[in-house]
Design a protein around this nucleic acid. Structure first.
Lengths: 339, 339
DNA sequence: AGAATTCATAAAACCGGTTTAATAATTGAG
DNA sequence: CTCAATTATTAAACCGGTTTTATGAATTCT
């Protein structure tokens, strides 16, 4: 491996001079600069990252902590990654992807070679958050922190508001028996969304029934589609819902599949709305899915931007809410037909 | 920041001793070990990654070079990532995710803090390969290298064989006018697959028509589905194909959409096979897609395993071929109906 | 018992950069 | 023309670990 000392020697200057030529942090005469650059090129010199990190106390890497290895990454996660990588690349940062097993002893053999961290899928009282606070490592959440935590910076969708909007949309169109296929129990996002639906009912002075909210069980259903499929199959003979809100498009696909099997027509017999994490999929189904567009890429970008600002001692907001968007397509009974 | 010197001082021992306590590379008495560990815990000491990397000349990080930032990551890519991360985590390595702009000056400001690299989506005469060879950095390809390159290690699907199998399957079922919606022109995978279809025709003594192979144009079609959709729409009035091989499930979804619009029945009027990159999707369509399962996660795992073996000076095969699998579902005319 | 060996630990050198303090060369002001 | 101020460069210190070499104490061998 060719080092800065090799370059310095061959160019007849000191290490410090070579360093300055590359970093441009102090003026070096044109002739010396040129000589050094030529030698460096000739020797195929590339600075050693570890040495530089050590000296500068900066890694120029940010960590992206994904959900556990047990569950598969969703296309929502994928787009978040996309956004993070994009923003980081622009700012000269690299991304270290990490996935942790759920019940892993958070055995830290060495501090991650990162300057800051972006955390996905926070749980209530997430132990990782405690850890990073203790380590004094800057971090940003995607999702929201615990209610009483007023310190942690985060980026999130307006989950409560958007589900409230969905609920009101359905209620306005004559639905009252709405089945909500929610995310897994205990996730902050599931709580927030449930709260949104509740508010929609309250806003119309209607009673909200908690038993109409179901939570995903990742152990029971190996893929999201089955969650939708089985949920409709199981409840169909017990109670007739007129509308279903599905946690993801995949779940909605499962509902569609079950509906076909049961001879239920969507949208005339049953309305369906997906909290989309994969917008393009909603266009491929028959009928096309009315859905909520979530902008996961934007989530990733904003989280990265906040973190990078923090790392550079620049001002950054404590939170950023990305508004979701209700896109009406063909899987809900049209208002015009109901009046 | 707490350093190893702080721990050493407080515990009344030397830096080297503390180092040995953690690395266990030389024997330390029980009492000293205990004292050091207690102090370390008390001070909240975590070793500095950069310093360790510098001293050991090992980063314990491998780089994953993704396709350009311009195009979106596919779920195929996602699963590859999954596989790589999984295997690396098991072996104590971390993954640095990198995406490069297509026409970027490969400006290397500093050597990546990685011990080796996994390269995705190689092109013919890929400049990145030249670069890594020159840098003398171990790397493994996912996809195949140029034909004359007998040095580069790689992991790949049996693209030629599997498309040959698909072609023969269709021909046996009475199809001769087969439209192949291939990947982008210039990718090794597109070449290999085309070759496979050609061999299928040759094997049956039938003439193979190159004009029946179409290549994706990422600039023209913003999403893969449109590639399938427009291709069927455009060719339908010109030439009647009896079967279509689609590059991905998304492309197949587009074909299905176009077929519905044109009133073409699948499979009775037109057979459809997808080279799947997202197996679960094939089950959600009506009819369920006959498809090729590709095991991208396995691809990632194997690539990581080879690379890690190389990094540890262990034997590793130069290539590993992951056989794909033809899964027959409902989107092809059944043999029984054709005879 | 005295020399040889083993063992636990300390001290110092090293990894490859950056940065600070010191020095030599150049310019400017009086 | 001299002395101070500025500029370009070097030498040395430093970042926080690991590893090699040295050292003193304990153990084993004749």
């Amino acid at each position: 491996m060719v080092t800065i000392a090799d370059v310095a020697k061959k160019a007849g200057v000191s290490k410090g001079t070579v360093s300055s030529v590359f970093s441009k942090k102090r003026p070096i005469s044109v002739e010396v600069t040129e000589r050094v650059l030529n030698v460096a090129k000739e020797l195929n010199y590339v600075p050693n990252h570890a040495a530089r990190s050590l000296a500068m106390k900066k890694n120029m890497i940010i960590g992206l902590k994904m959900p556990t290895l047990d569950t598969e990454l969703s296309s929502f996660d994928l787009k978040v990654i996309n956004g993070v990588v994009k923003k980081c690349t622009e700012s000269g940062y690299r991304v270290l992807l990490d996935r942790v097993y759920e019940n892993e002893e958070s055995a830290i053999f060495s501090r991650d070679p990162v300057d800051g961290v972006i955390l996905l899928n926070p749980k209530e009282e997430d132990p990782r958050i405690v850890q990073y606070k203790q380590l004094n490592l800057p971090f940003v959440l995607i999702g929201r922190p615990d209610q009483e935590d007023t310190y942690t910076k985060f980026v999130d969708n307006n989950n409560t508001e958007i589900v409230k909007e969905v609920g009101e949309f359905l209620i306005e169109n004559g639905h009252q028996d709405i089945l909500f296929l929610n995310a897994s129990y205990g996730m902050t996002v599931a709580e927030d969304r449930m709260e949104g639906l509740k508010r929609a009912y309250e806003n119309f002075g209607l009673p909200f029934k908690e038993e109409n909210v179901v939570y995903n069980n990742q152990e029971k259903y190996k893929c999201a589609s089955d969650y939708g499929f089985n949920s409709l199959l199981d409840t169909f003979h017990v109670k007739k819902y007129t509308a279903i809100i599905a946690d993801t498009d995949r779940v909605a696909l499962g509902v569609l599949r079950a509906a076909r099997e049961l001879g239920i027509n969507i949208p005339s017999d049953l309305s369906l709305i997906a909290l989309s994490n994969n917008e393009t999929l909603a266009l491929e189904t028959t009928p096309k899915l009315t859905s909520i567009e979530l902008f996961p890429e934007k989530l990733g970008e904003e989280a990265a931007e906040i973190l990078i600002n923090v790392l550079n001692d620049q001002l950054a907001p404590r939170q950023k809410i990305i508004p979701a968007k209700l896109v009406i397509r063909d899987s809900c009974r049209k208002p015009s037909l109901t009046r």
